[in-house]
Amino acid sequence: MKSELLKLLSRNARYTASQLADMLATDEKTVNDMMKDLEKQGVIKGYKTVIDWERVENPDVSAIIELNVVPKAGLGFEDVAEKIAAYSEVETVYLVSGDYDLHVVVKAKSLQDVAKFVARELAPIDSITATTTNFVMRRYKEMDVKLYDSDRDDRGDFLL
């Protein structure tokens, strides 16, 4: 039931305990206990909002930065990954397979700010051998949520 609870919460963190209990065929207490457990275990790290920033005035600029990294002996990628994750400008850090090693999403006020951040903070890190900066032009889907409007329900209001 835990994985089903997580699935529902990842869809909508604002379901009430009673609504979750209905959907999971259990009672509110069980839901509350499970959530507390999952928080304690560090499985649930937080509850955030999905925002379409493009609808906000002066939205931040995001870029996906591909970093090639030489892993450090004994530490692998941990050291550099955690160092990068510590910046507040950094939204996401993934170690990935493929042509590069670290997938980093950076957010800043402007293109210049992102460029500056990469040039001054990321590129000089010793073990980083190359960086590629890809600015995000438009978001279509964020955390499972479609951000575009054309996906309306086109079924009739009454169909037997």
Binding site: G156, D157, F158
Partner: peptide
Amino acid sequence: AATMDDVISLGVGE
């Protein structure tokens, strides 16, 4: 329903 634009439907059978 056709004259209203904010209808929430639970009417469809598909």
